[in-house]
């Protein structure tokens, strides 16, 4: 952190550069903040364009979508695009939504609990060999995630996991990175709580279950939210394991729109809306936790 000391030293202006008069500086900051807002509004609008296009198209008819005459809004709101999604026997969209929901709802809490358990033990229960266990867990982080997909497929395939729910879920339950995050969280946990619990006759597991877990809720919410997002948006793994349409996830069902003979465009966009809606709502409602989770996991790496 030498730069802490260096930075002020570089700040003095070189000799000969005169300090701007006060009034113009004030005007400068005012102009600056107007420009900042202008730039931000413009960029935010650009960022939201894809959402707008998606919604617009999802509520239009095919001729409206493909028309070369630009239309800002659909002539009438065609909600039937959404209901049409669910009665195509070739593409079990409802089933795939259900599959994605089950996968995410199981993965988020279970994966977070496993990571919290291991993180707590590694931080707070001193046993011989603890460093070895930590090294074994951290060691898996050295290998890039997407590269493990084929090895994992070999193992899950040999255990008969293709086209099964457990095959889709199981490999995603073990997040070594979350263990590291939980461990550093528990390392800075006040020791008094555990001591009080021990004095009250709680076992180690009792302390964890009754005192530690209830006091880790923000951490669990943040990492659980990220885990839910990953599970919902994951593509490569369900693509390999869910080969039968009945074990498709919503992402696979969505991509199947592009392989079908005739593409019903409004329905494709309606399907995209349905696929992203749960997470968009989650981002709007639980943004605090998500932001915290992102900041935590990003900066620890």
């Amino acid at each position: 952190m030498t730069s802490t000391l260096d930075a002020p030293r570089t700040a003095p202006r070189p000799a000969g550069v005169k300090r701007p008069p006060r009034a113009s500086r004030l005007r400068g900051t005012l102009l600056g903040s107007v420009l900042t807002y202008l730039a931000l509004c413009l960029l935010a609008a650009v960022c939201l364009i894809p959402f707008y296009m998606l919604l617009r198209n999802a509520l239009m008819t095919t001729p409206e979508v493909t028309s070369t005459d630009w239309q800002w809004l659909p002539g009438a709101l065609h909600w039937e695009n959404f209901t049409g999604l669910f009665d195509n026997p070739e593409r079990p969209f409802g089933r795939s939504l259900m599959n994605s929901l089950i996968i995410a709802v199981v993965t988020a809490p279970v994966a977070t609990l496993f990571a919290s358990m291991a993180g707590y033990a590694l931080a707070r229960i001193a046993v011989p060999g603890r460093a070895v266990v930590l090294a074994l867990i951290v060691g898996t982080l050295m290998i890039p995630q997407a590269v493990t997909f084929l090895p994992t497929f070999v193992v899950v395939g040999s255990m008969g996991g293709v086209n099964t729910m457990w095959g889709l879920i199981a490999p995603g339950l073990f997040n070594a990175f979350a263990v590291v995050l939980f461990r550093s969280f528990y390392l800075s946990f006040p020791a008094e709580i555990e001591e009080a619990g021990r004095l009250d006759g709680l076992s180690h597991l009792g302390v964890y279950r009754r005192l530690i877990l209830p006091n880790s809720t923000t951490m669990i919410a943040s990492l659980g939210a990220l885990s839910f997002i990953d599970a919902w948006n994951s593509f490569l793994w369900p693509l390999m394991i869910g080969q039968d349409p009945n074990s498709w996830t919503v992402q696979i069902a969505l991509s199947s729109f592009l392989t079908s003979q005739t593409v019903d465009l409004p329905e494709l966009f309606a399907g995209t809306v349905v696929a992203i809606l749960p997470l968009v709502i989650m981002f709007l409602v639980a943004q605090r936790h998500i932001v915290q989770g992102i900041a935590m996991s990003g900066l620890k790496s």
Binding site: L43, P50, Q251, L254, F269, T272, L279, F283, V291
Partner: peptide, 19 residues
């Protein structure tokens, strides 16, 4: 600016490719 992060790559690819 964060909202696009909620979108999966597949969904974004749909919007980019088809719209």
């Amino acid at each position: 600016f964060l909202l696009p992060a909620a979108v999966s790559y597949v969904a974004a690819a749909m919007i980019w490719k088809m719209s």
